[in-house]
């Protein structure tokens, strides 16, 4: 049954992604009126699908690749909706909604092939661990996006070009506030997520777990994150330099995700 919800969510995300283009670039309010309800509808259906997916799998933690993708997509849409509600900025729709769509398409059309092989997946702590880290990914993605868009608009303003091409962007100050607040939110999620994971690992596997390359990489990412926040706050870096810093963390996060392939204790594998 969840596949039906998921496919309906894909349809709505597709509709919202298409409507987002004229809504953002053309400033057409009619398209915006179509885009937002479609995005909210997609979000609700996707949430229903995820709940059904997890119920059918008899666990509450996304342990399969598809479950993780759906959960991540859900969080991306949630953050987009949050940014829209808090900053009245709709521009992120052109990035967030297609990303949510892409993340949902594969789980909506194919069977689950890879699942997380740990035997301790029923713990509530794991649930917190997985969701907080996925939220950190999504928040950092938005923070990087806001920094890139800041850089684009800053470049235009400095070169005194016509605003026609970037008219859809929010003001610099708003983009900066979005980047900063999501950076902090992502950091808090990552810290809490790693803490939850560490507690479980310490309790069940002891220190052995922390010698794993993926786990080590996760802590390196966290340290880089701390460093980035410190540098940004102390120097006031914005625009280009902020993009570099955020990109570095994103790269580290991607490498952590990719470390699934080499990790012996923390990986997705064929069931």
């Amino acid at each position: 049954m969840y596949l039906i919800w998921l496919r309906a969510a894909v349809f709505l995300y597709g509709l919202a992604s298409v409507a987002a283009i004229p809504a953002v670039f053309g400033g057409k309010s009619t398209w915006k009126q179509l885009c937002l309800p479609a995005a909210v509808g997609g979000f609700v259906l996707q949430m229903v699908a995820l709940v059904e997916m997890l119920t059918a799998a008899h666990h509450w933690i996304p342990t399969g690749v598809h479950e993780v993708q759906v959960a991540l997509s859900l969080l991306v849409t949630l953050i987009f909706l949050f940014v829209w509600a808090a900053y009245r900025t709709f521009s992120f729709a052109v990035f967030a909604l297609p990303l949510s769509l892409l993340l949902t398409i594969v789980p909506a059309i194919s069977d689950q092939r890879y699942t997380f092989s740990s035997e301790h997946i029923r713990s509530g702590w794991i649930f917190a661990h997985v969701f907080l880290l996925l939220a950190a990914y999504a928040a950092l993605f938005f923070s990087l996006l806001a920094s890139i868009l800041y850089q684009v608009e800053e470049h235009r303003l400095k070169n005194k070009r016509s605003p026609r091409l970037t008219e859809w962007l929010p003001p610099l100050d708003t983009m900066d506030r979005i980047a900063q607040s999501l950076l902090i939110a992502g950091f808090l999620c990552m810290t809490a997520g790693l803490l939850a994971g560490s507690l479980i690992a310490q309790e069940r596997s002891g220190a052995r777990y922390f010698a794993d390359p993926k786990i080590l990489m996760s802590f390196v990412t966290w340290l880089l994150y701390v460093l980035m926040i410190y540098v940004r706050r102390s120097t006031g870096f914005r625009g280009r330099r902020a993009v570099y810093l955020s990109s570095l963390i994103i790269l580290a996060m991607i490498s952590v995700y990719a470390a699934n392939l080499v990790s012996s204790v923390h990986r997705f594998s064929l069931p």
Binding site: E153, L157, P163, P170, P171, L172, D173, T174
Partner: peptide, 8 residues
Amino acid sequence: DLARRIFG
């Protein structure tokens, strides 16, 4: 207008 593009 420029000020608003920068500061909102």
